[in-house]
Computed example of a mutant assay.
Amino acid sequence: MPDFRSDTVTQPTPAMRDAMLQAPLGDDVFGDDPSVNALQEHAAQLLGFEAALFAPTGTQTNLIALMGHCQRGDEAIVGQSWHTYRWEGGGMAVLGSIQPQPVETQPDGTLRLADIAAAIKPDDPHFARSRLVVLENTTGGQALPLPYIAEVAQLARSRGLAMHLDGARLFNAATAHAEASGGDVYEAARAICAHFDTASVCLSKGLGAPVGSLLLGSRDFIRQARRTRKILGGGMRQAGLLAAAGHHALQHHVRRMANDHALLRTLAQGLAEAGRSHPVLAGKLAVASAHTNILFCDVHADVAPAFTAWLAQHGVRVTSSLYGGATRLRWVTHLDVGPQDVAQALDCIQRFAPA
C-alpha cells in the first residue's frame, strides 16, 4: 500500500533494527548512556557544532532552543507558516512566555529581508525584546538558497539577534544543494548550519529513525538545554535503543535521500501529465509545487471528493486539505516509497473513473 502521507511513517530497516538491538545502554538522564553520547558527539562533529542533545521530538528541540535564546517577554521572529509558529501548539508562548513575531512567508519559502528588518523592535519598554530569528529549511519541501541564509544571518548579527534553524528536513535541503552544485551532501549540511547558533534536526523523517530529534549548539547552550529538556519531560532513561537508530540513519540514510527526490520528480511528471490529458482530470488537477521530497497538487472541487475517495479505495494514502476552493493533496516520498509505489500510484490515477 503506497503511503505518501509523510516521511514520518517510515519503518526501521533490518540493519537499523540490528543496530538498536546491539546498542550498549546506560541512563541518559545521568548522562551515561553510551549510545546516546555517541550519537550526540557524532552529530555535533558532523554538522560543525560543539555539542548536541537528543530529545524525543522536533517540537521539543525547537522549544528548548527558543527557551534558551529567549526569556519571558522576549520575541522570536518566525515565518507565518513555520512549524515553530503554526504547527507546534503555540509552545513558545504557552510554555516559554515568548512572543512570536510572524512574518509573511514568500512563495519561494523565504522571508523578505525588509520584512525581517521591519519586525525587529527598538530597545523600548513598550515592545517585546527581539532576540532571535528562526528559519525553517526545508519549508514546504523548498530548500532555502545558501546566499539568502547568509544575508539573513548578516542582518541578524548586525542587530544583535541570534539565529535558530528548524532543520527538521536539513538533509533534504543539503541533498538539493549537493545535487545542484555537484558537491557532497554532508558538506552542504555543514555549510547550511554554519550560519546558525543552534539547529534542530529530525531523525524520524527522511532519515528513517523511529523516534527522536537533535538540538545542536555551543557547549554552554546545550548544558542549559539539558535542564530545559528535563523541565519539559524529555529526559529518557535507556534511550540508547532509539539513539542507535538515529546514529545508524546519519551514517547510512543520508546519501540515499537523492533517491527520494528523483522519485518525487517522477511522481510530479505523472501527475502533471494526468492534469493535461486524463479524461476526467484534465484541467482539474495541477501540480502546485514539487521540491525535494514534498509535492502539493490541487484538485478542482467538483472532482476532488471522488478522486480522493478513489485513491483511498485503491490503497494510495495521501493527506489533503482545503486550499482556495480546491483540495490540496500532499505527497511525500521517503525511505519506504520505491519506484513500484510511484508506478502503482500513477497507474491508479490513470484508471480514475468516477461513477
Results as ranks from 00 to 15, higher is better:
Ala65Tyr: 05
Thr105Met: 10
Cys70Pro: 00
Thr110Lys: 09
Thr84Glu: 03
Ala128His: 03
Phe127Ile: 12
Ala76Ser: 12
Ala119Gly: 02
Gln106Glu: 15
Arg129Glu: 10
Arg131Met: 14
Ala117Leu: 06
Ile120Arg: 11
Asp124Ser: 14
Arg112Tyr: 13
Pro107His: 14
Gln71Met: 14
Pro107Trp: 10
Ile98Tyr: 04
Gly91Ile: 01
Leu113Gly: 09
Pro107Glu: 15
Ile116Asp: 03
Thr110Phe: 05
Gly91Pro: 00
Gln106Val: 09
Asp124Phe: 13
Thr105Cys: 05
Leu113Gln: 11
Ala118Asp: 06
Ala117Cys: 05
His83Leu: 07
Pro107Thr: 12
Ser97Glu: 15
Leu66His: 12
Gly90Trp: 11
Ser81Phe: 12
Val78Ser: 02
Pro107Ser: 14
Pro102Val: 03
Thr110Glu: 06
Glu75Phe: 00
Pro125His: 03
Arg129His: 13
Ser130Arg: 05
Ala114Lys: 09
Tyr85Ala: 05
Pro100Val: 12
Thr105Arg: 07
Ala128Val: 00
Glu104Thr: 12
Ser81Val: 14
Pro100Cys: 10
Thr84Val: 13
Val94Pro: 00
Pro100Asn: 11
Lys121Val: 03
Asp115Ile: 06
Ile98Gly: 03
Ile116Phe: 01
Met67Thr: 04
Phe127Arg: 13
Cys70Asp: 13
Ile120Trp: 09
Pro107Leu: 14
Ala128Asn: 07
Gly89Leu: 13
Phe127Gly: 08
Phe127Thr: 10
Val94Cys: 04
Arg112Ile: 07
Asp123Trp: 15
Gly68Lys: 08
Pro125Lys: 08
Glu75Asp: 06
Ile116Lys: 01
Arg112Met: 14
Gly109Cys: 04
Arg131Pro: 00
Gly73Trp: 02
Val78Met: 07
Ala65Pro: 00
Pro100Gly: 09
Ile116Gln: 02
Gln101Val: 14
Gln99Tyr: 06
Val103Gly: 00
His69Cys: 04
Ile64Asp: 01
Pro102Asn: 01
Trp87Arg: 04
Pro100Glu: 08
Thr84Tyr: 02
Thr110Trp: 12
Ile64Phe: 04
Trp82Phe: 14
Gly96Met: 11
Leu63Asp: 02
Val103Tyr: 01
Ala93Tyr: 09
Asp123Met: 15
Gly96Arg: 06
Pro100Phe: 10
Ile98Val: 14
Val78Ile: 13
Tyr85Asp: 05
Asp108Thr: 00
Ser130Gln: 01
Leu111Phe: 06
Thr110Gln: 13
Ser97Cys: 13
Met67Val: 00
Ile64Tyr: 05
Gly89Asn: 14
Pro100Ser: 08
Pro102Phe: 04
Glu75Ser: 09
Gln99Ile: 11
His83Tyr: 09
Ala76Lys: 08
Met67Ile: 00
Asp108Cys: 02
Arg72Tyr: 05
Asp108Glu: 06
Tyr85Arg: 04
Ser97Trp: 12
Glu88Leu: 05
Pro122Leu: 15
Leu63Lys: 07
Pro122Cys: 15
Ile64Gln: 02
Arg129Ser: 12
Arg72Phe: 07
Leu66Ile: 09
Arg131Leu: 05
Asp123Pro: 11
Asp74Cys: 09
Pro102Thr: 07
His69Ile: 01
Val103Cys: 02
Val94Phe: 11
Ala117Phe: 01
Asp108Ile: 01
Ala76Phe: 11
Leu66Glu: 13
Val78Arg: 01
Ile120Ser: 07
Cys70Ala: 13
Pro107Asn: 15
